[in-house]
């Protein structure tokens, strides 16, 4: 076991996969000589050379399309979005070509690529660098969307994403890079399509992902003291959703709260509620509640920023209300 910071867990995943498969390469802004803006690719440039750790000009849409072309012709690119907000500049290549081209080509080509980088609301980075983008991409056919939340799952999921034969949007959270955890010394891979039961429980199902998992964990401490026993599920895969795990939990607790950092309108939670209504309506003892961030551009002011995203106390209150059926 070795205590590892989350950004180093990601680095280990990339290093191991580049060592294992020489068609894997990294590209993006400042990934090479600079080592990545969060040091996820530190020293890999020296180890693998300038073609396998390719510093690109600031041309997001074009270097994303270039990765699509490289993937179509047999390489396995990993794009680092210096900030995942920059993906908006590459939306066309991600949606039209990474996402749809396999289908449009009638299966002629596969596009094994990973697009990863820091997202989420950070420490007063302002609206453009504090995006909640996962919902923007969830309707694009052909994309897989994954959010990591711990050093253990970050490493195992990134390795799985690199090995997957499809385009994977891999969301990291800017405030989780310095989380520490003891990681196994042996190699492991975490499946992309399985939600993680963080805490088994019987009273209510809390569905969450990314940094909100840790807000939920804080709230659970208070809830335990009040004798409430929630089941916490980290979705991991935002698309496709793991309804086997979600459904089994609903059949046990009959109550669901969704805690997400993305925006309320058209969010991941909105999609989950609609799908739960389709599949498990009869199992529910109460309407599904979602705690989402506010439908506003993330404000710079620290107090307003805190108000924008869901805080542990709100989660605690919402769970208490639901368990008391005051929903």
């Amino acid at each position: 076991m070795a205590e590892t910071l989350l950004f180093n867990a990601l680095r280990e995943a990339i290093d191991e996969e580049m060592g294992r498969d020489d068609t894997v390469f990294v590209l993006g802004e400042d990934v090479g000589a600079y080592g990545g803006s969060y040091k996820v690719t530190k020293d890999l440039y020296e180890k693998y050379g300038e073609l396998r750790v390719l510093d690109t000009p600031i041309a997001e849409n074009s270097f994303t399309g270039m990765a699509v072309g490289a993937a179509m012709t047999g390489l396995r690119p990993i794009i680092e979005g210096m900030n995942m907000g920059f993906l908006l500049l590459a939306f066309n290549q991600i949606a039209n070509n990474a996402g749809m081209l396999r289908y449009t080509s009638g299966g002629n080509f596969k596009i094994p690529m990973v697009i990863r980088g820091p997202g989420g609301v950070g420490r007063q980075l302002g609206a453009e660098h504090s995006q909640r983008l996962e919902a923007y991409f969830q309707a694009v056919p052909g994309l897989k969307i994954v959010a990591c939340s711990t050093p253990y799952n970050a490493k195992g999921l990134l390795k799985a994403a690199i090995r997957d034969n499809n385009p994977v949007l891999f969301f990291e959270h800017v405030l989780l890079y310095n989380l520490k955890e003891d990681l196994p010394n042996h190699e492991y891979v975490v499946p992309l399509d399985k939600a993680e039961i963080v805490r088994p429980g019987k009273d209510v199902t809390i569905l969450t992902y990314s940094r909100m998992r840790h807000h939920v964990t804080q709230a659970v401490k208070g809830l335990e003291k009040k004798g409430i026993d929630p089941e916490v599920i980290d979705l991991i895969s935002l698309k496709p959703l793991d309804f086997d795990t979600i459904g089994a939990s609903i059949q046990k607790t009959h109550r669901v709260i969704i805690v997400e950092e993305c925006m309320r309108t058209g969010g991941i939670g909105a999609e989950i509620i609609a799908s739960i209504n389709d599949r498990y309506f009869d199992e529910l003892d109460a309407p599904v509640v979602r705690l989402s961030s506010q439908d506003i551009p993330t404000p710079y002011n620290g107090k307003l920023e805190t108000l924008t995203i869901v805080q542990p106390k709100q989660i605690e209150t919402a769970v208490e209300n639901m368990v008391a059926l005051k929903v």
């Binding site: 849409n61 399309g65 699509v68 072309g69 012709t73 039209n96």
Partner: peptide
């Protein structure tokens, strides 16, 4: 949008 894809194929050769 095809130009970057073509560039990727050319990059792959190199």
């Amino acid at each position: 949008e095809g130009i970057p894809v073509a560039l990727g194929a050319a990059f792959q050769s190199r």
